[in-house]
Structures are given as structure tokens and as C-alpha cells.
Design a protein around this nucleic acid. Sequence first.
DNA 1: TCCTACATTGGACAATGTCTAAGTCAAGAA
DNA 2: TTCTTGACTTAGACATTGTCCAATGTAGGA
Lengths: 140, 140
Amino acid sequence: MSDLLERLRGRGWRLTAQRRVVAEVLDGDHVHYTADEVHALAAGRLPEISRATVYNTLGELVSLGEVIEVSTDGRAKRYDPNAHHDHQHLVCSQCGTIRDVHLHGDPLTALPEPERYGFQVSEVTVTYRGICPNCRSTSS
Amino acid sequence: MSDLLERLRGRGWRLTAQRRVVAEVLDGDHVHYTADEVHALAAGRLPEISRATVYNTLGELVSLGEVIEVSTDGRAKRYDPNAHHDHQHLVCSQCGTIRDVHLHGDPLTALPEPERYGFQVSEVTVTYRGICPNCRSTSS
DNA sequence: TCCTACATTGGACAATGTCTAAGTCAAGAA
DNA sequence: TTCTTGACTTAGACATTGTCCAATGTAGGA
């Protein structure tokens, strides 16, 4: 994740303890925390960090394209640091767990021209829902 | 939409003025209102209808499978009465307009077995984003 | 080391949604 | 038709998630 910090500094980011901690929290595979979770984890390392700063920092990371915003359920948005590899999401409808998944083919091509209604289509998100192995075994 | 009311009565629904009005508001093509918009429109016909009732009724329609809940942006959920024809959504990233669209093929098959991680996958939602013709012409 | 523009803070506020207790009423029973 | 009852509605308090602002702090260049 220090790569990320370097990249951001290169873009004129001022490197503060708060931003470093938020970036550290988001480091890792299959990370999909809510802003609140990020705040709680960050506060574990830097107790005085404020909610506003976490929201600001996440928003900046998103607009810089370093993190993707995912809203799977209309509740709190989740933040996915895996922004440099095209992928989609698989969500457990019971416990809310999210996995990154990769599809056959490009879903953009599945939308026929007449179904585009003159829109200039640039992006597609695909979300699969189902029951994860863990929930399946505990509920049966 | 009276079909809907009949179906619901058949399922033991008590047919109240409030529910009738909510159902009427949701009648039509390409309807994707937020709960608040449904409330405002319903209040136009039945001024004393409360927010709680609108939320309750929408929730019931969703769990009965008569209406689909759509959350495209992490803000307010929208309610789509087109629940009996499989379709996906095309959203304008600028003005938020939503269109129902139909895809080539079944997006469920695009998720390879090894990418399912033992999940029992049952549902997929695909959301296309772009700029609608209207926003394109007014912004240029 | 000093400056200063940018970052952080805490708390008020906004938007959306949920819950509850009390009153109301749809629809079957008599 | 009228009665009865449990389901429905209501108003408003409360919860969750996110945004905004004025005051204060500080990273990093001069």
C-alpha cells in the first residue's frame, strides 16, 4: 500500500497520519468495509481520527480512482481497494459477505444497441446474489 | 393495476384506501419512484396518508414479489413495478433517470463455476451507467 | 525555522428508513 | 344490517448514514 501513498503524494496529496491510517486499513485482498468500519479500524491505530476525515479521505480515494464505491443493499456503501483489476461482486443475501469475481466476456457487449436509447454507455456493474457456503451449512 | 389489487386480496390483503393509492401511483411503464416520491404522489390523492404506511406498503409489495427494489446510487431506494418481466437497468450518471433494458443472453451464465466459491447463486442484477441523450445535448 | 494553504476536528444538520403505542376500519359473522 | 376483531394507519420519536461548517492544527516548501 506504500505504492498507493507514493502515487498519491505524486498527485499533490499532503501525507497526514490520518490518510496513512485509512490507506493501511484498506490494504489487503477482498476488503469491502463500510465507512463506519474503516473509521473503527482506523481509530484502533489513531484514536483521535474523526468520522469527517474518514469520509473525506474515502471520497478522495474514490474520485482519484484508487478505491471503488460499492452499494449492494441500499444501506451503507462499502469501499473496495481492488480498483485496478476489472471485477464484479458476489454477495451473500444472508450475511452480506462480498467476494470479488471475474466474468466470462464483457457485460457491456450484452446490451444491444436498440436497448441503449441513445445513452452513451460507459460502465456496467454486475452483482450476483446467493447463499455462501457458510450460511448454507449453518442454516440447514 | 386492478389486477394487482385483486391478486393481493386473494392473498389475504385487506384492501384499504391507502394501499389502493400506493398501487395506483406505481401503475405505469418505466416507473422508478423513491419512497418519498411515492408518498408525495399518494398524498396528492389521499392527503392524510402517512410516510410509515407508504414504507410498509412498499415493503409488502416487495416481499410479495410484485415490485422490485432498486438501489442504483446508495441514496434512496427506488421501486419498480415491472417485476414480472426479467430486465436490467440503464442509469444516467448525471440526472439519475432510469430505463428498463433487456440483455442478450442470461448474465447468470457469465459467472464461471470456479468463480462461485461454493455460493448457491440465484440472482443477478446488471446496471449500466452512461449519459442520457438529454444530458448530453444540454451539457455540450 | 516560519508560513500558509491544505487538512482535521467536533458537532450540528440532512436524508432516509424503522419502530411503537394508540386509534381506526375492512370484511367476515350473526 | 350491525357487530366484532384483528389487521391497518398514524404521528412522531428514534436510528443510521452521510454532509457541512467554523475553528484549529500541521505538512512541506521557502
